[in-house]
Design a protein around this nucleic acid. Structure first.
Lengths: 239, 239
DNA sequence: CGTTGAGTTGACCATCGTCAACAGGAGTGG
DNA sequence: CCACTCCTGTTGACGATGGTCAACTCAACG
């Protein structure tokens, strides 16, 4: 079985919610076994092909999603084409609950993605009967807000090298819950995605990686990087 | 009676929640009259002096707040002193519900501020009995997340002039619910606050204002600006 | 009337963006 | 199997946007 965080694996689509590997980390953890059965009845296990969209900016939101594997890029574009990636959703993350008719951003699968899909209306109706689930969603929302606020500091006040170091340590921390704790970090997204996430250009990201290699902080490996001096990278990120 | 959005006015501390002017815009709108009475019993009407703090970054959160008048600056600082203002809270905004023990940011009154204060524990306990209030908080949280995501685009991808134009139109839109719809816009915060909010320096903000005056887009008045060509400012902001 | 703090303006400069060339791997088709 | 294209990523030269440092104005306040 592949350990790649962005490949669809057999374990991601269990027969029942009860057996779902991401349940403890997802909103579903707010429900007991009986309620899980009800939720399961509303859910549609879905495979999303690489590069296809789960949500489209300014388009009506028909579905909400619970990501079960893979990596989803969330981005906003300006009318002249400038793009800002506002986040990456991974297993356990919940997508689409904005209480607005139209989506504020585009969500696209980077590699293969699996997710539980819900009709938005049905999900909202179910929500009205499950206060604990609403409470859990509130905690998720507050957490996303905290991450966005940290990203505001990064975009507003940090240098290119600090942004890249921050990005690498942040990604490592997020993967830790799935056991990926080694010195190797998979980077499922392209340099362009990273640049658009960090408010930089692809050239600056590339140059910064190269500098970090020269400084013996990381080495670049296929589809990712390997930390050589994790402590020092963390120090640059913390600053 | 002063129309300044950041001055304490008599109407801000009504005897009863029922009569509160900001209720329709705040989380309290989720409660009926009986419930309002319960909430009122938990609330402590509070006046906050200019420059004093409601929340301190990295310190335990004892209270949560419902702002009823004035303007509160939310900011995060890095260890070397760089500061990012992550938002401004005005009447109707709710502060402090992060589900974390310690605050992620500092919240300081810019001018005089009034707010309903709640002990965090008591408020959380009350929440457990009021699903509609949780639901309302979720909507507020989702809305704040949306604003933060738009700010990510601003900080990551927009020029100085676009940032300033966006800031002015955004502030105007937020004030509109309180009837401040004229061409004059009060700016309760300093140039430094604006700079730290927009990821710029105070000099760049000042130069950009000057340029916009030269271009006949705005004129600068005491404690604010006046729109001369609102449509054009909006166009620069939209881009 | 001197002091303080906020804001403005100018001169200069650094970081990062732009434009261009190039390298290397994957896929395609002869 | 090789040539070709395409795409991603890297590197270099140059330049622009916005930052740094400094001087100055002006209003508030004692």
């Amino acid at each position: 079985m592949s350990a790649d965080c962005c490949e669809s694996t057999g374990q991601s689509h269990p027969a029942r919610c009860k057996d779902c590997a991401v349940r403890p980390f997802s909103v579903c953890a707010a429900l007991n076994d009986d309620e899980l059965g009800e939720l399961q009845a509303l859910s549609e296990p879905t495979s999303v092909a690489p590069k296809s969209a789960l949500l489209l900016q300014d388009e009506p939101v028909q579905n909400v999603f619970n990501v079960t594997s893979g990596c989803v890029r969330l981005s906003k574009i300006l009318s002249d084409g400038r793009r800002q990636v506002i986040g990456f959703a991974i297993a356990g993350d919940f997508l689409g609950l904005s209480f607005q008719d139209r989506s504020n951003f585009t969500a696209e699968a980077i590699g293969p993605v699996t997710a539980c899909r819900f009709r938005k209306k049905a999900f909202l109706n179910y929500l009205d009967t499950k206060p604990d689930l609403v409470r859990r969603l509130l905690e998720f929302s507050a957490n996303e807000l905290r991450l966005a606020q940290e990203q505001l500091v990064l975009l507003g006040r940090r240098t290119a090298e600090e942004r890249v170091a921050s990005f690498l340590t942040m990604l490592r921390a997020r993967n830790s819950r799935f056991g990926h704790q080694g010195a190797t970090l998979q980077l499922p997204m392209s340099r362009l995605d990273i640049a658009d996430y960090l408010g930089l250009t692809i050239e600056t990201v590339s140059r910064t990686f190269t500098k970090m290699v020269r400084d013996k902080l990381i080495i670049i490996v296929p589809d990712g990087i390997r930390f050589v001096d994790l402590a020092h990278v963390g120090q640059i990120a913390a600053e």
